[in-house]
């Protein structure tokens, strides 16, 4: 530090203070705008839109809640088979989703895509499309195509999984270490062997982790596919709802929770086994 540096740094300090002040004002403005926006949203959606009269005040709500809390345990034995059905749909949907993800990931990974100008954007687009359409909408579309039943539910679950699985897979493919791949080429391996020995071992743990993660989510998604007549816990839920048997509804919700907890335990061990 030299002596002549002092005025310069004093000037710098002023600038720093001014910068800081500007930033503080900006931050305040941002906060104020956000608060105003949220307050307006709150008023418009909740205060304005809600039919407070019809809700029947605190008493009405309390009454409904009470009916939910009186759990109808008699339904319990009838839940085992639907729970299994839900699990089946989730598993089939995940597997099918993996199958669909294969070409999408292949197209959408920049280093292996068959064509940079056609297949790569196509793959990327399919990834986004799959994620941006809600599973309910996929289900409705597939009901139109194949009719009611388990199939549209499974297809919807599969389509919704494609986006995530293929995106992660494509990223894993893009991040592989090219050196082992080169080694397999150098020993005279063909295209399949290069993929199977050079690429697959490198991306396998990531893919399996993703599939397990997605399977977990798909259990929850299949639990609502009763909407399209796909059976499982979803169907029981909608039936109980239609019968206004709220105690039964609560039990179904609890059953979903238990199922997911079981799924989480299974995926915990599965993950440990592969990694």
């Amino acid at each position: 530090m030299s002596i002549t540096a002092a005025p310069v740094s004093a000037h710098g300090f002023d600038a720093y203070l001014a910068h800081k002040r500007r930033r503080r004002i900006n931050n305040w403005l941002l906060v104020a705008c956000s608060v105003a926006l949220l307050a307006w949203c709150f008023w418009d959606t909740i205060m304005f839109d809600t039919d407070w009269q019809r809700m029947g005040g605190a008493l009405g709500i309390g009454g409904t809640l009470e009916r939910f809390l009186l759990i109808d345990w008699s339904l319990l034995p009838k839940l085992l088979v639907p729970a299994l059905e839900t699990l089946m749909m989730a598993t089939l949907g995940t597997i099918l989703g993996c199958v669909f993800s294969l070409p999408v990931a292949w197209f959408g990974a920049a280093n292996v895509t068959p064509s940079k100008y056609f297949f790569y954007p196509l793959g990327r687009f399919l990834m986004v499309l799959s994620r941006s359409i809600h599973e309910i909408i996929w289900a409705l579309l597939f009901v139109g195509a194949v009719g009611l039943g388990a199939l549209p539910g499974i297809l919807a679950v599969a389509m919704r999984s494609v986006g995530f699985i293929s995106k992660i897979t494509a990223e894993a493919i893009e991040n592989i270490d090219p050196k082992p791949v080169e080694a397999i080429r150098a020993v005279g391996g063909n295209q399949f062997q290069v993929m199977y020995y050079g690429i697959v071992p490198q991306i396998l743990p990531v893919i399996i982790g993703t599939i397990i993660f997605e399977w977990d989510i798909n259990i929850r998604r299949s639990a609502i596919m009763g909407l399209v007549g796909a059976g499982g816990l979803g169907l029981v839920f909608f039936r109980q709802m239609a019968m206004f048997n709220y105690g039964g509804v609560t039990l179904v919700v609890l059953a979903v929770l238990v199922l997911i907890a079981i799924g989480e335990v299974i995926s915990h061990y599965a993950r440990k086994a592969v990694i």
């Binding site: 959606t45 909740i46 839109d49 809600t50 039919d51 019809r54 809700m55 709500i61 409904t64 809640l65 939910f68 309910i136 929850r220 998604r221 639990a223 609502i224 909407l227 839920f237 709802m241 709220y246 509804v249 919700v253 979903v256 929770l257 997911i260 907890a261 989480e264």
Partner: peptide
Amino acid sequence: IMSSRSIHETIWTILFVTVLGFGMLAGT
């Protein structure tokens, strides 16, 4: 956190609509 996650948003919507009536309050 796990129970909010485990139950699909659709089911939450239906439950809230049942308790609070149709409208954006339930949705929110």
